[in-house]
């Protein structure tokens, strides 16, 4: 079997022990969504404050295992300050890394942005980097690459994607009144 160290990389344990952006945001102006993992009963709430098409702030509360909590923590760092298009592209790349969902469109294409119902929309121009350079540090997903090993433990993929699916729901949710 693949080694435990493939799954529990040091950076994952670090985010698990010291999760970033834990907590809640006032709603409104933030939106929220609650995600469940029916396998284990875990529940996360993602709060997202979108201003002018950009994630101004994001917080996560709830309980989960080291994989779901560290994935949520890294996600909040990765999406803060990003445009919604960039976030959606990042979600697609993340899921593709875990071998689920459609592979993201090639970096150089910029014509898919209005594809009907396409979850894998790409941004034509992201500030401060080439399209697809979503982590801003030159690699595709930055720290999130540490979660690549989860793919060898199929039962845990849902743990890794829980916060991400909930983020997408939160972005699409109506602003509470």
């Amino acid at each position: 079997m693949p080694g435990l160290d493939d799954l529990y990389r040091e950076i994952i344990l670090d985010h698990y022990r010291s999760p970033r952006n834990r907590g809640e945001l006032p709603t409104p102006p933030a939106r929220l969504a609650v995600g469940h993992n029916p396998l284990c009963g875990d529940e996360v709430t993602v709060y997202v404050d979108v201003e002018n098409g950009t994630v101004a702030d994001v917080k996560v509360s709830g309980q989960g295992c080291s994989i779901s909590q560290s994935s949520a923590s890294m996600m909040t760092q990765a999406v803060k300050g990003r445009s919604i298009d960039e976030v959606q592209s990042m979600v697609a790349r993340f899921k593709s890394m875990l071998s689920i969902g459609e592979p993201p469109p090639p970096r150089s294409t910029s014509s898919n942005g209005d594809r009907d119902g396409g979850a894998a929309t790409t941004s034509a121009s992201s500030p401060g980097g080439e399209a697809g350079d979503v982590s801003g540090d030159g690699s595709e997903l930055g720290d999130l690459e540490a979660l690549r090993g989860v793919v060898k433990f199929p039962v845990r993929i849902k743990c890794a994607t829980l916060a991400w699916n909930t983020l997408v729901e939160a972005i699409d949710a109506p602003i509470p009144t």
């Binding site: 079997m1 080694g3 435990l4 799954l7 396998l39 284990c40 009963g41 309980q63 989960g64 295992c65 080291s66 994989i67 433990f153 845990r156 743990c159």
Partner: peptide, 25 residues
């Protein structure tokens, strides 16, 4: 520790335990 993590580590020693809500939420 989260039960998922416990069962994952236990599995490395071939110890099979259930982690979850046991259909009793």
């Amino acid at each position: 520790l989260h039960p998922h993590d416990v069962s994952q580590i236990l599995d490395a020693d071939n110890v099979c335990v259930r982690a979850g809500h046991h259909c009793a939420k």
